[in-house]
Amino acid sequence: MTDRRSVVITGTSRGLGFAAACHLYRRGWHVLAAMRSVDTGLEALRAATGAGDDDPRLTGVALDLTDTASIEAAAKSIEAASGAPYALVHNAGISAAGMVEETPDSLWERMFATTVFGPVALTKALLPGMREAGRGRIVLVSSQGGVRGMPSTAPYSAAKGALERWGEAMAGEVAPFGIGVTVLVTGTYDTEIITDAGTTDCRDLAGVYAPHHATMDKRGRAAMRMAARSPEKFAAGLAKALDSTKPFVKQPVGPDARMLMIANRLLPSAGLHQMTRLMMGIPRFGALGGRRNG
């Protein structure tokens, strides 16, 4: 590409966001890398890309999506560095494991603050400039949990589902101003978020859901080992999505996400529920009725 477009990417200190920032920088974009630990994160990005300390195409932006003041300051920093950005990529997210009964309210609040409320606030702050410019793209990074609610990840699935519905609604609002919206449904990628270190674990492995956890953990880890792809493949998919001129696009990035989206279109909800149960080894309906912990 010859024009120097600017892109804001949240959650760039690691994982998919880090890979995307590196990939787009190498393609000539002005990358505004938003993250909580901006000093260490920007240093890592410079090391990975070869960017110099004074490179105008790599700008660090301090951002905590759970803090209103941080979001407001980040929006001002972005506009000062690049004017109205061409693209805004909402990638930042957190992961958690645990049944609904096991997950505390504080986790649900943090999940929605990071995945929905914070991104909405940042978008609202940047939209006036993007509307004035009359062009741009907003990309919402979803996942398989946004397509279909997955057992043991209810807060994550709920937040990603809300993210997708927000994107669908917003697309109709901003399209007349020349701004498109893309929902990227990611498959399984080899990042920290799928590991124990990157997940808030709320599971009670000795509680009433122990029969679920024992099988789901074993099968889930095996599936991740087989299906996980390099984050660079996601970055390439994101780069293609940013070149779209359609007012709204929802597309998979990864073969497992593609298969789930096809199944979601073709199969009835009851069929998908049963397929998920069998794949995860969850006991049949009523199998644990009347059982008590201890």
Rank of each mutant, 00 (worst) to 15 (best):
M226P: 04
Q251A: 14
V208G: 08
V181I: 13
P252S: 09
L184A: 15
H212W: 14
A239E: 15
V208K: 04
S244M: 15
I179C: 02
L238V: 14
A210T: 04
G187Y: 10
H212P: 04
V181K: 00
A214Q: 06
F234R: 08
V174S: 03
Y209D: 11
A241K: 05
K160E: 12
T188Y: 04
A159M: 13
H213Y: 15
E168V: 00
I194N: 11
T188R: 07
W166Y: 15
G187D: 13
E232A: 13
K160V: 03
G198A: 03
F177D: 00
Y209M: 03
T199K: 07
G172E: 12
G207D: 10
P252R: 06
A159R: 15
M216R: 12
L184Y: 10
R229E: 15
A241Y: 02
T195M: 09
Y209K: 04
Y189W: 06
R225M: 10
W166G: 05
L238A: 08
G207V: 02
A171G: 04
L205V: 09
V208I: 05
E164W: 00
M224I: 13
R225N: 11
P211A: 07
Y189E: 09
T245Y: 04
S230I: 03
M224C: 08
A214E: 10
V185N: 14
A206I: 02
L242Q: 11
G187F: 04
A169L: 12
E192S: 07
D190C: 11
A239N: 14
T200M: 06
M216F: 08
T182I: 07
P231R: 05
K240V: 13
D201A: 04
V185C: 14
R221K: 12
P211L: 00
T199S: 10
Y189N: 13
M226F: 05
A214N: 03
E168D: 14
K160Y: 12
P247Y: 00
K250H: 06
K250P: 06
T199N: 09
C202N: 12
S230C: 05
A175Q: 03
K240S: 15
A241V: 05
H213M: 05
I179T: 05
D217V: 09
R165V: 02
V253G: 12
C202Q: 08
A222K: 07
F177M: 01
L184Q: 14
A235R: 08
T245L: 07
D190W: 08
G161V: 00
M226W: 07
Y189A: 06
G161R: 12
A222L: 05
E232N: 08
